[in-house]
Design a protein around this nucleic acid. Structure first.
Lengths: 176, 176
DNA sequence: TAGGTTTGTTTCAAACTTGAACCAAGACGA
DNA sequence: TCGTCTTGGTTCAAGTTTGAAACAAACCTA
């Protein structure tokens, strides 16, 4: 089977994407490490909880929403719990589950650091995009996501064994 | 100063981007770990070297091209060297520098695994994008990159003779 | 309702990343 | 030429991620 190599346009796009995502994530991580003392993922955990009804979420749902492994989330929550920003609670209906709950301290950290975070995202991303490009980016990314966790067809070489179930989402300025 | 929060459109785009980049990188890492026994970054090191004149690059130039810290590259090259895929060489003109050189074994691994990698990138990204979207993605990403590193460090440094900043030398099927 | 499977979560060791500190070599100015 | 600054690279410890394995609670199903 002969490989369908990337076309020159695709190569350029791919390289540009790799570079941009690397640099962007680095910048955001650096900023959050500075201002909030935690990496982007941990901040996203707090942000996600803050938007959840009752500020709490099952570990699995949270992991699903963040697109990370449960193992990775366990580590993050453990650290955030140690810092008093999150607390674990047992689920009353399913004794296997545990809930991550945003504490008041966690809320405070979020409120204090959200402006700086949003500013960084803005400065490095949205201030450089036209409204049209914002739309394009969303379109492109939702397409990729759909493909990778397939609401439709299965495609791709790799596949994720854990999937399914979605939960809350809404809007709030805290951002992810 | 009041924060300029993200608009709903920007929020949607941002969340979509975070999810997509996370899932995409995971898929690629998983595939490469399977087929090549190394994470994406390590593969990119090999790919980048394979495109360099003489299959060798100064550590700093390689790090720059990959948009990673020198420290991180040191670790990667050390591991790749242990596996015999890369070799270190001293720079004759600048005794501080060391060069990373792609070995024959490294080339072989690259040639063996490139098709699978490209297939993954294709299946999960480009097969889901229209040609127009490929263009848009490149445009968006180059803009971001320019903002993140061009802003401050665009001074055209006078290239010293031996410092051929050769970065990307165009097209080759190996991809990054 | 016992036994087997699935689901939710954690644990653990190995791998990788980060950032500051360190060392050596080149560049530069007085 | 000496002293100082800069550049190229590595080292080290602490932090994070990975993936497989371990557990326990729910869910079948015969």
């Amino acid at each position: 089977m002969t490989t369908r190599w990337l076309t020159p346009e695709e190569q350029r796009a791919w390289r540009a994407y790799i570079a941009a995502s690397q640099l962007l994530e680095d910048a955001i991580d650096r900023q959050l490490q500075q201002e909030a003392g935690m990496p982007h993922l941990f901040y996203s955990v707090l942000a996600n909880l803050s938007e959840a009804p009752d500020r709490r979420l099952r570990m699995t749902d949270l992991a699903e929403s963040l697109k990370i492994t449960r193992s990775r989330l366990t580590y993050a929550v453990t650290r955030l719990e140690r810092d008093g920003l999150v607390r674990r609670e047992n689920c009353r209906w399913d004794k296997r589950s545990s809930l991550a709950v945003l504490t008041d301290a966690g809320t405070a950290v979020l409120e204090r650091t959200a402006p700086g975070h949003v500013e960084t995202v803005r400065a490095n991303l949205f201030d450089r995009l036209t409204p049209e490009q914002v739309r394009q980016l969303e379109e492109i990314c939702t397409g990729i996501t759909r493909g990778l966790q397939g609401d439709d067809a299965e495609a791709g070489v790799g596949d994720v064994p854990w999937r399914r179930r979605s939960s809350c989402s809404s809007s709030r300025p805290t951002d992810s």
